[in-house]
């Protein structure tokens, strides 16, 4: 594996909630992504996957804080930077496409104006003409007409807006792109279109992408590798084919079982009984223990370490430890 472009090492993030104390949203998370890769991050609501995106960009709300770990981007630990230094990385090195929102841009300003402001953050001396030609080309790449530039956000449909946001994210040609539930709020048809178009863009721009979603089908469509999160911790990380066909972690297995398949024998869709544990309470043992169908006695008292079953495959489960010794 080549030198990773982004390495998250043992990251922990907490939120202070009034009346509830400290909520551990992300705990001891480690993952890495190499240039050109597309890494998926899946999990249910509350798994901490979106917190991951905010933490990487250092955009946590004021009641959130990074309580440990490192985020190393091309050799620099982003967590040690001041907000001012961080600005150099924002959008130019790392860009985000958020979940579709009608208010993702200012509703009372024209789109070209907003784009112009964004590009001038890192290219302050760009002229209007240069900008316009760049913008038009970019829009064309995502399948939008240049008339979109003269419009206001509310005049565009959801799908067009998301394409616009993708175009905006590519405006500086970022090294790393994060898609944070980017297709979640779209209807299935639009979602399919955008995913297909994104694959083309990925090639054209040689993108390195992190795809955060709860939808395994999106991950299956786009990703090389996938990280499965639960309750703020990494459960399993591996190549997509391996995870989809031979998952090792009980949670991953249950997650996959809860998705209906188009082909193959018809089987009942299983949910996962139980609910997320209370993230404000410190925990002994594995975080999934109370819902795990294959739980062992030791799971209740000892949190499993990250077992590396193969160079590219990590499983945080005692069962995996029985197969191999950890590295």
């Amino acid at each position: 594996m080549t030198e990773p472009i982004l390495e998250v090492v043992d990251l922990s993030v907490s939120y202070r909630m009034p009346g509830k104390g400290e909520i551990r949203a992300v705990e001891g998370l480690s993952l890495a992504i190499s240039s050109g890769e597309t890494l998926g991050v899946v999990g249910e609501s509350g798994s901490g996957k979106s917190t991951l995106a905010s933490a990487i960009l250092r955009l946590l709300p004021s009641n959130g804080s990074i309580t440990g770990g490192q985020v190393i981007f091309q050799g620099t630990n982003l967590l040690l930077l001041s907000q001012e230094e961080m600005r150099q990385f924002r959008w130019k090195a790392i860009a985000v496409v958020f979940q579709k929102s009608m208010n993702a841009l200012s509703p009372v300003h024209r789109i070209d104006e907003q784009f112009f402001d964004v590009i001038r953050v890192h290219q302050p001396s760009i002229t209007r003409e240069e900008f316009m030609s760049l913008a038009k080309r970019l829009l064309a790449r995502v399948g939008l007409r240049e008339s979109a530039l003269q419009s206001y956000p509310h005049e565009l449909s959801g799908g067009m807006l998301q394409r616009l946001m993708i175009a905006l994210s590519l405006i500086h040609n970022p090294k790393l792109l994060i898609l944070d539930e980017a297709t979640t709020a779209l209807d299935v048809v639009t979602q399919g279109q955008i995913l297909r178009e994104f694959k083309k863009l990925r090639e054209e721009f040689s993108l390195t992408t992190i795809v955060i979603t709860h939808d395994i089908s999106v991950v299956a469509e786009l990703c090389d590798k996938v990280a499965v999160m639960y309750a703020g911790q990494l459960m399993e990380l591996g190549k997509i084919e391996r995870i989809l066909t031979r998952p090792d972690h009980p949670y991953t297995q249950a997650l996959l079982a809860s998705f209906p398949r188009l082909e193959g024998p018809r089987s009942r869709i299983e949910g996962i009984p139980g609910a997320l544990p209370d993230l404000s309470q410190p925990r002994l043992g594995c975080v999934f223990a109370e819902r795990c169908p294959r739980v062992l006695p030791q799971c209740q008292v000892q949190s499993p370490p990250n077992y590396h079953l193969e160079p590219d495959h990590i499983v945080k489960c005692h069962l995996a430890g029985r197969e191999r010794t950890n590295v």
Binding site: P18, S54, L59, L60, P61, S62, N63
Partner: peptide
């Protein structure tokens, strides 16, 4: 909706 502070601060 209990008002919480956003990423602003």
């Amino acid at each position: 909706k209990l008002k919480e502070k956003g990423a602003w601060e």
